[in-house]
Design a protein around this nucleic acid. Sequence first.
DNA 1: TGGTTCTATGAATCTCCCG
DNA 2: TCGGGAGATTCATAGAACC
Lengths: 395, 395
Amino acid sequence: MPIERAGVVRSKSRIEVLRTGISTANRPCLSPVENPLPLDQILLGDCVEKLNRLPAESVDLVFADPPYNLQLEGKILRPDQSQVDAVDDAWDKFDSFADYDRFTHEWLAAVRRVMKRHATLFVIGSYHNIFRVGTILQDQGFWILNDIIWRKSNPMPNFRGRRFTNAHETMIWAAKSADVKNYTFHYDALKAGNEDHQVRSDWLLPICSGGERLKNEAGRKTHPTQKPENLLSRILLATTNPGDVVLDPFFGTGTTGAVAKKLGRSFIGIEREAGYAAAAKARIAAIDPLPSEAIASFPNKRTEPRIPFMTLIESGLLAAGETLTDEKGRHEAVVRADGTLAVGPIIGSIHKIGALVQGLPACNGWTFWHFQRDGQKHPLDRLRIQLRESGKEPV
Amino acid sequence: MPIERAGVVRSKSRIEVLRTGISTANRPCLSPVENPLPLDQILLGDCVEKLNRLPAESVDLVFADPPYNLQLEGKILRPDQSQVDAVDDAWDKFDSFADYDRFTHEWLAAVRRVMKRHATLFVIGSYHNIFRVGTILQDQGFWILNDIIWRKSNPMPNFRGRRFTNAHETMIWAAKSADVKNYTFHYDALKAGNEDHQVRSDWLLPICSGGERLKNEAGRKTHPTQKPENLLSRILLATTNPGDVVLDPFFGTGTTGAVAKKLGRSFIGIEREAGYAAAAKARIAAIDPLPSEAIASFPNKRTEPRIPFMTLIESGLLAAGETLTDEKGRHEAVVRADGTLAVGPIIGSIHKIGALVQGLPACNGWTFWHFQRDGQKHPLDRLRIQLRESGKEPV
DNA sequence: TGGTTCTATGAATCTCCCG
DNA sequence: TCGGGAGATTCATAGAACC
């Protein structure tokens, strides 16, 4: 095995830390000590075989760029890489789809086992294979979160003029099952980086070319389908945290590893072709990780510490007896010393009372209710932010 | 052994169908004379049953908008607590993927039988169903020509902030089999109407709303998923000729029929719900077909237009059938639905026709041709500027 | 009448912590 | 595992309402 490690090699203690919390129950074959998570390495060999040697529930994200269907390449390979005779009638065409399906089924099941409970999966493909992949992953219980369209700003034109320019590829983003709700998704950061608008399911990005494209000595491209780093950046920034483990079972020339290293994530790459793996290793070794302040997490509203309304009063930011209104001044409520609001005889939380006065089933009291300072109305949330910021300062 | 998992286990009979085409057992044996093609009609009933009564190899194009098999749980509320009027109709309910696959397999096989040899098929769907559809149609021997992304310029946002905005739907365009080469595809006309650039596989179009959206007496939408006419226009203009027969097995409120009538194509619609069919019938009756010079075939030779003139028509800024003149009103031409101009029998880009009527070698159609509004003539360029200003595409 | 503001709504697999 | 409740969450467009 010429290449078992590439790029950054982590210390054992680091691995131990990252592996903490991984159950030993379902782990195949090897003990944790004998089989530590091979972080930031490229495993050379068949992906199913290599995956089966990894501990269960050990990675946070999977990015998979499997071989596209083989029907256009004139030859068909079985999962064991034996070649199927070239054929062109319906029976054999079906047979080739069945082969591709079996291959897909195997690697998806192997990947699924090593995913942590909250982990998610990206698979990229074209119309040749993506429908088979999508069907099979649904059959395995994966739960699709989005299909995402990579719109190529500079696609290869259609030379024969008999079809529309094939200007996109499709990615499927899926959780392990429908009941997984706590997957990582940096909604706030994505929105903030997109003119304060939600990021859509169609992404416009150029294909990989220029200096980013790996070439051999003869100037030929090293890999036929090298993915652009920007594509992987978006994915990793959106769905992982720094320190997370990203698995790529079809590593190729290592775009996933390069981007993971740059963004302070760990990677595990599996690649069958030694030539691709070697190119990936050299490429990743030359990557400088970004400074930590460039990749630190964007504040996430859902994970901010909760501030009880009462704390505002206790801290003196708001006084018991003050009158709150909505933004337009159409509704009023009085702040009570115990951290509740009163509208006439009715008493309740800022959310309950906000819902009540509007006749709605629910309401976010932090943004609905406003207090008055210097003749201007400000939302309660402003005081909450103030409190959180002051709490972070050293005392 | 029934079909348990599409793409994984196949029944023997399924393989038989794939090998031999349609088995004769299920084939209805009515002669064309006994069963003339019900052109420009809506057949009320189950689509498979109705399809089996149609003569084999009788339609030129199929547009299918099957149920998506959305699996909704509970309600979704907007941030203002209003409830989204979701698709919860009985026709979109399936017990399992296996059920949906069976349904898909049946209607696709029935559709396949009535397609002429050179006919093509469009199916539209979302990530909930499109992977199943794509897999099954590949299994049946259909040959995918493109997958086409309808990018919605105004999609519904994601209200919970846990996913990317689901801003597109996917269409699969397929021929009956891989050896069909003579399908209709108006490459030259499409290119001429698109700045002399090939049309890509991602199309930006708004959802159906405003006056085009059918509403009942109470002002509620008649159909939850009415498709925009511009979407069907592009499809019919690209892949059919005037006089062709377009089949829609899930007719709904008849967008396919309305566009077919407008563009001088015939249609056959099949719809199970009497209410939808009645709405479709009334809608189509009110359609005025475009004048024949606006839809006659684009000459099958290369031209050199330089304008996305087609976009003006799709955006509604200019209507197919309108007459353009030069500034002094000495020359006239008719706007065609495919983004070209006609002067008598001669058809070409706005530039070519402008040059022709003046007897000059070249002409800038954008400044030469004028349209009439409120009794005044304005150059086409005015509309182009308007469009550019409004056409800020989300990235 | 014209400009501005408000409101309704669209194929949607749409929360999460705590007791 | 289930239920309750805090509190988090929206963009483009049409058309009505208002000024």
